[in-house]
Design a protein around this nucleic acid. Structure first.
Lengths: 117, 117
DNA sequence: ATGGTAGTCCGACGGACGTCGGACTACAGT
DNA sequence: ACTGTAGTCCGACGTCCGTCGGACTACCAT
């Protein structure tokens, strides 16, 4: 049986271009935005992405292999978390500015999780 | 004859994902990094990219169409400049963090413009 | 053991992307 | 007018990417 352990790139191997590429997709950007907003580890199923399960798995893997998120098995599901410490150290300010920008643009395209009081 | 004027997207139409995608390529990242370092408008020929002329044109266009740079004809050449004001307003901190990160990583992959004495 | 739930793996497919050479246009200088 | 320089446009080619369905595995609960 497999060790049920996911491969994560060490911090030194995280490449800026790969991170930018990983963030340059609506679904993946939404995942990152969500994780940043949650501020905690959440299972894949907590974020629904309007794509199939296979595609969802694919996007999470791209993020993990780029060094943007961590994934650990937890019972029947898998917890995803931002690699905030690593990213902030390698690319100071990048994650925050991207997440802020994503929040801003999301408002443009129509409110989805931000209920207008 | 053509008006010799390049099309630029208005600031309101600049999309975060397109900007990130535009930045997620070594050649284009180098262009942006160079422009940021220069702090001025420079002709295409000032930055050499280890790709063909056609490809160079292509990369500049991607950057322009994503709203990252401006291009204006100036005699026989073309001046390229960062749309810093627009980008800073739309995505505060993004450009700076990307450029800083690019500077940092460039040092990792080997000194190119930092001559070792 | 059985069933359900969460996610993975494996082709496959169409479209986008980076790259190129080569012919072309626009401008400046002589 | 001629030449050189700077950049553009146009296929073309191979590769990567996002997407999917469907079969599969791992785990928990009953």
């Amino acid at each position: 049986m497999t060790a049920r352990v996911l491969e994560h790139p060490p911090a030194e191997e995280i490449r800026l271009e790969e991170v930018l590429h990983a963030l340059a997709d609506p679904a993946r950007l939404e995942i990152v935005r969500f994780l940043a907003a949650a501020g905690a580890e959440v299972p894949c199923s907590a974020i629904d992405l309007a794509v199939s399960k296979s595609t969802t798995t694919h996007h999470y893997r791209v993020l993990r292999e780029a060094g943007v998120i961590t994934q650990v098995y937890r019972g029947t599901s898998k917890l995803n978390g931002l690699r905030r410490a690593d990213l902030d150290r390698l690319f100071p300010g990048l994650l925050d500015s991207v997440v802020n920008a994503a929040e801003g643009q999301r408002a443009d395209t129509g409110p989805a999780t931000a209920p207008t009081p």
